[in-house]
Design a protein around this nucleic acid. Structure first.
Length: 350
DNA sequence: GACACGTGGCT
DNA sequence: TAGCCAAGTGT
């Protein structure tokens, strides 16, 4: 007998989400892609990306045979681009050997950790497997009034133990969806709907009037600020020079205007790119844009340059490319870069 | 254990 | 509004 799971399953039958795109035809491939996209990303953000991705890569073979650039292009704007690179790598890895169905085999694949492996097993294979995502963490932290923030090893250990104890061997897929739905729909971070919660009678945090205390917040940390300059170089016909970034680091593998340290001068970047400086006129310095990430702020100062004539050049080893809106679209142009270009457009530069 | 990795939602 | 957080994993 498992009161926790039975209560949750009963609630799920009446209120749970059953029409999410990846719940229709939940094959291992479709569940896997959805779980990767859903890492640190909310459902509403994922849905349009998931549908476009599945239209373009209906099977794992389609994904394995595709160029990484095209996969990154589909991912542009979703963030955490290592997920896309790992997805592509994994597709190629398992194209011949087949997709593993056991915990260890799944966890050995790039981008799949303990929780994602559990989700694939539970949701796609109806196995008795356990997940621990942010929703489950929040529900369990409140239900058991668990002390400590959820990144701490000691706290994680307790959360995993509770998660394993609660997860039933029967209807595991539905239970998995149920506890995530509870976290997303009722047991939310702010203003949880406790009076609608089926677990209200057993919830330690609620019964002791301490719902607001759990889960404990992450300790504050001062975020360093990184400054950089992004050179927006355009031609008279509206093309913009892009550089493919290294796979490591921010916006890995994506195409953005060339980014250099704030100390770099326009002359230096023109010389490096191979543009003749006498054919370039500095138009103006655009406003700064600040991107806030988990552990740092990125201050980018776009530096806008306009060429007098369209140069013949560039493409040294495929690292450079001209982006022309509406044609010859580069792959993986990052959302920040798109916004940067659009915003600069509004300033009527040139 | 600490940190890197993105973008958008929420208060 | 500025800060916190979200269907976590890799190094």
């Amino acid at each position: 007998m498992n009161g926790f799971a039975d209560t949750l399953l009963d609630w799920f039958d009446r209120h749970g989400r059953k029409d999410l795109p990846w719940q229709q035809d939940p094959t291992p491939y479709r569940v896997w892609v959805s779980e990767i996209m859903l890492q640190q990303t909310q459902v509403g953000t994922v849905i349009p990306y998931y549908q476009r991705f599945m239209d373009r890569f209906p099977t794992i073979d389609d994904l394995a045979e595709a160029e990484l650039d095209e996969v990154l292009h589909c991912w542009t704007g979703l963030g955490y681009y290592a997920r896309a690179r790992n997805l592509h790598k994994t597709a190629a890895l398992v194209a011949n050997s087949g997709f593993p169905t056991d915990q260890a085999g799944l966890e050995a694949l790039p981008g799949i950790g303990r929780s994602t492996a559990g989700a694939i097993r539970a949701l796609a294979h109806a196995q008795h497997a356990v997940i621990l995502d942010a929703n489950v963490k929040r529900v369990l932290a409140r239900f058991h009034a668990i002390v400590g923030h959820t990144a701490e090893a000691r706290t994680l250990e307790q959360l995993w133990a509770h998660a394993e104890r609660h997860t039933p061997a029967r209807r595991t897929a539905e239970y998995t969806q149920a506890i995530m739905d509870l976290g997303a729909m009722l047991c939310t971070r702010g203003a949880p709907k406790c009076t609608e919660c089926p677990l209200i009678d057993e919830c330690t945090a609620y019964q002791t009037h301490r719902v607001g205390e759990f889960p404990h917040p992450r300790p504050k940390r001062v975020k360093p600020v990184r400054q950089a300059r992004m050179y927006v170089i355009t031609t008279p016909d509206g093309a913009c020079l892009l550089e493919q970034r290294p796979n490591k680091g921010i916006w890995g593998g994506l195409w953005t205007p060339p980014e250099r340290s704030a100390a770099t001068t326009p002359d230096e970047i023109c010389s490096e790119v191979g543009i003749h400086c006498d054919s370039v006129t500095e138009s103006r310095i655009a406003p700064r844009f600040r991107h806030t990430f988990t552990h740092f702020h990125l201050d980018i100062e776009p530096y806008y340059l306009c060429l007098d004539a369209e140069p013949a050049l560039i493409a040294e080893g495929g690292r450079w490319q001209w982006y022309r809106p509406g044609q010859n679209r580069p792959v993986g142009l990052s959302a920040p870069a798109v916004k940067l270009l659009a915003t600069l457009d509004q300033f009527e530069l040139s």
